[in-house]
Amino acid sequence: MFKILKYSFYDLMRSRWSYLYFIFYLLLGLILLFLNRDVSKAVITLLNIILVLTPLIGTLFGIIYFYNSKEFTELLLAQPIKRSHIFWGQYFGISLSLSLSLVLGLGIPFLAYGIFQSTEIFNFMTLLLIGAMLTFIFVALAFNLALIFDDKIKGFGVAILTWLSFAVIYDGIFLVLLLVFNDYPLDRFALGATLFNPIDLSRILILLKLDISALLGYTGAVFQNFFGTNLGIILTFTLLNLWIIIPVLAIKVISKHKDF
């Protein structure tokens, strides 16, 4: 598994897409800091970008990589290697390289700007960690979809739909439900519903650290009591980890039964 991980990682590190992704984040970080001159403001802007972009790039990159390396994968399948090791190797290779682009690309400008002198260091670290976790989650989802759909076009379509549903549609339905059941006590429902969407979960975790004043309304207090405590933070990260572990295990199950 590690050999395959190593090869796909090096392969990706040499590809220009990784560089592009890295340079994009580097420029983004530099421009944000140049425009804002205030690390805490830059962290808030970054939050929006990371929450939208890392899942999108993770999904697209994952599915493109899978389809492009299909011939190589079939060659590997002919060798006496466990199926799960092949796909896990590729999965971790791509997730690691994407996360590395993100962490380095944003880390360098913020380091250069002196985040360590700022009190925002912890928030920034959480943000990068969450960006990396979202990458892992969505690449795993993309791999599952690619394994299920042999047809490229279908695979792409469903992958984009998956991203869209987590990023937009889920929240839309959530909002409509909240509005429809306006007359009932909803804070527990709202709390529960965020747990089932990794993007929402990450957003609220960061928001409670940053934008606290607005959230601390009536509902905010309920959330603060839940997410603000150590238990809440541990639970959030456990859930995010589950969002990685379950699709990764699913890769094994699906690949085992797949007829190539």
Partner: peptide, 21 residues
């Protein structure tokens, strides 16, 4: 406006859907 109608919707603050809205 939505938040003033249903305060619980504040949990969707800064999400992409709300930006689109």
């Amino acid at each position: 406006y939505v938040v003033s109608q249903t305060p619980e919707t504040i949990v969707l603050l800064r999400s992409l859907f709300v930006d689109i809205l």
